Amino acid sequence: MPGFFSSFFQWLSGLFFSKTADITVVGLQASGKTSFVNVITSGQWSEDVVPTVAFNFRKIRKGNVTMNVWDVAGQPKFRSMWERYCNGVNAIVFVVDSTDHGNFETARFELQQLLAQPSLSGVPLLVLGNKNDLDGHASVNDIIQALQLSKIQDRPVSCYSCSMKSQHNLDIVLQWLAGRSH
């Protein structure tokens, strides 16, 4: 019987105390953006992910938080759309392939271009160094240095090393995202 009351209370409090977080996921192509969205929505990772064309939208409920997630394509021709989908959100998630050291400079440039937009001033940033299950992945400190995250002063910035495949650190990432809800 105590389990019933606990479940009922959670359901009832979810009705009256639910929160929403609008989140946009961006990053270079093949960094793991869509895999991230798939894993947090279904708990399933797949190697057969079709590259996103333009954007995908998913609604995810975790506890009393509903997350509206925009997964925006990372190919060069779609990067000009990033600002539009990041405008007015509670958080920007920037996914980096932590094994693709050769693209860190491009990732830094694109992130700096995005964050320079006045409409995005103050929007919290979460950088995910994906694919930490693979040999040769960059550490969090390497990613912070390569993307010059310590120079970002106009918003909260967090960086985590994670793996969509093994789901390493995704619980912390979800807590961080839920903390951005209103």
Rank of each mutant, 00 (worst) to 15 (best):
M1S: 12
M1L: 10
G3I: 13
F4P: 15
F5H: 12
S6H: 11
S7D: 15
F8D: 03
F8Y: 12
F9T: 12
Q10T: 15
L15V: 07
F17M: 05
D22C: 11
D22A: 12
I23C: 10
I23S: 09
T24S: 10
T24D: 00
V25D: 04
V26A: 00
L28K: 01
K33R: 01
S35Y: 00
S35H: 06
V37C: 09
I40T: 10
G43A: 08
G43Q: 11
G43F: 01
Q44T: 15
Q44I: 15
S46R: 03
E47T: 11
V49H: 09
V50K: 15
V50M: 14
V50E: 13
T52C: 02
V53D: 02
A54C: 12
I60Q: 06
N64I: 12
N64S: 11
T66Y: 03
W70M: 02
D71H: 04
V72Y: 02
P76Y: 01
R79C: 04
M81E: 08
R84L: 03
N87I: 08
N87H: 12
V89S: 07
I92Y: 01
V93I: 11
D97M: 04
H101T: 00
G102Y: 00
E105N: 08
L111S: 10
Q112C: 13
Q112W: 14
L114W: 06
L114S: 07
L115V: 02
A116M: 14
Q117C: 14
S119H: 04
S121G: 06
P124N: 02
P124F: 02
N132G: 09
D133T: 10
L134V: 00
D135R: 14
D135G: 15
H137E: 05
H137N: 00
A138D: 03
V140M: 12
N141I: 07
D142S: 14
I143F: 03
Q145D: 10
L149F: 11
L149E: 07
Q153P: 07
P156F: 06
V157I: 06
V157K: 05
C162A: 03
C162G: 06
S163E: 02
K165Q: 08
K165H: 02
K165G: 03
K165D: 00
S166Y: 06
H168Y: 05
H168G: 08
N169I: 05
L170V: 08
L170P: 07
I172R: 14
V173P: 05
V173Q: 02
L174H: 13
A178P: 09
S181I: 03
